[in-house]
Simulated assay, not measured.
Amino acid sequence: MMGFGWFGWFGMLFMVIFWVAVIVGIAWLVKWLSEQGSGGNRSSRRRALEILDEKYARGEIDDKEYERRRRKLLKE
């Protein structure tokens, strides 16, 4: 009977888990890098400015507060 050497079934299972973890890690890294390059922060900032504009248009905030928040969002 041919075995798996001194590792046995545990060694084979460990290697499968190891390679699955490596592949999942690489996939996560690629996804994270693509999100960083696509300007995900830029789109969230644009949405924040839209919400700020809506609040100003509805009269929920005054001119001074609008300008203060807008400057802060554009500075980030």
Rank of each mutant, 00 (worst) to 15 (best):
W28V: 10
S43Y: 09
V16E: 12
G5W: 15
D53H: 11
I61Y: 12
D53E: 02
R45K: 12
K55M: 07
E50C: 12
I23Y: 07
W6V: 01
D62R: 03
W19G: 13
S38P: 00
G39Q: 04
F18E: 14
W9V: 07
E65G: 05
R58K: 11
V16H: 03
R70K: 08
W32N: 11
K64S: 10
R45P: 10
W9K: 04
S38E: 06
Y66V: 00
V16I: 14
L29K: 13
R47C: 02
G37Y: 05
M12C: 11
G39H: 06
L52G: 01
A27L: 06
G39M: 13
A21Y: 07
A48K: 05
L73N: 02
G3T: 15
S43M: 13
E35V: 04
R47K: 08
G11D: 01
D53V: 06
I26E: 12
S34M: 08
E65K: 14
D62I: 06
G25H: 06
G8W: 05
E67Y: 08
F10G: 04
R68T: 02
Q36L: 15
E67H: 13
W32Q: 15
D53R: 13
R46D: 11
G59F: 00
D63R: 08
L49P: 05
W19Q: 14
A21D: 02
E67G: 06
R70Q: 01
G59M: 03
G37I: 07
F7N: 01
G59D: 04
S43C: 10
F18Y: 15
L73C: 03
L49S: 12
L29E: 14
E67N: 06
D62A: 14
R69D: 01
